[in-house]
C-alpha cells in the first residue's frame, strides 16, 4: 500500500465515526476554519482555479523528492475538503501523486462536491495537483 492510499484509508476511517451528516460537515467546517500554511502572496489570478461559485488558489513546492501543496478557498466547506486533499497529496513523490486513485471522496460521501454542478473548483484542483506532479517529475528528469 502506498502512503497516498494509507492516508486515504485513515481519513475514511476517521469520518466513518460520524453518524450523521451534520457531524461530518461540522468536522469539515472545523478543518476549513483551521489555520493553514498558505502564503497570501499566491492569492493572485495565475494560481486561481476558477469554480463558478467558490474560488480555490493552489501552489506547489518541491522539497527534495517530495511535493508539497498549499491551497486556500473563500468558502469554508471547500477549504475543509481542500485540507483533506492536501493531507493526502502533500509530501508525496511525484510518481505516487500521478498514479494515485482518489476513491476516499466517494467513500466519505462527498462525491457530490466534485460534480460539475457544484462548480467549486475541486475537480480542477485535483487535475492541477497532478499537473504540478507531472511538471516536477519532468523537471527532475
Amino acid at each position: 500500500m502506498t502512503s497516498v492510499e494509507k492516508i486515504q484509508n485513515e481519513i475514511v476511517e476517521e469520518l466513518s465515526l460520524f453518524t450523521d451528516w451534520i457531524e461530518k460537515y461540522e468536522y469539515l467546517i472545523g478543518l476549513g476554519k483551521d489555520e493553514i500554511d498558505f502564503d497570501k502572496k499566491f492569492m493572485k489570478d495565475e494560481f486561481l482555479i476558477n469554480g463558478c461559485q467558490s474560488k480555490v488558489w493552489l501552489y506547489a513546492k518541491q522539497n527534495n523528492s517530495k511535493v508539497t501543496f498549499h491551497a486556500y478557498s473563500d468558502a469554508i466547506m471547500t477549504k475543509g475538503i481542500i485540507a483533506l486533499l492536501i493531507k493526502v497529496f502533500s509530501n508525496q513523490s511525484p510518481d505516487d501523486i500521478i498514479n494515485s486513485k482518489l476513491d476516499f471522496i466517494d467513500k466519505i460521501g462527498l462525491k457530490s462536491h466534485l460534480s460539475a454542478t457544484r462548480a467549486n473548483g475541486l475537480m480542477s484542483m485535483i487535475k492541477q495537483i497532478k499537473i504540478y506532479a507531472i511538471g516536477f517529475k519532468e523537471k527532475n528528469g
Partner: peptide, 22 residues
Amino acid sequence: KVHHYDIGVLLDNMGIAVRTGH
C-alpha cells in the same frame, strides 16, 4: 461573513433547493 456557497451546501443537505452564485 459567510460564503454563499457554504450556505447553499448546508441548505441542500436539509432538503432546501436554492440557487447560489451570480
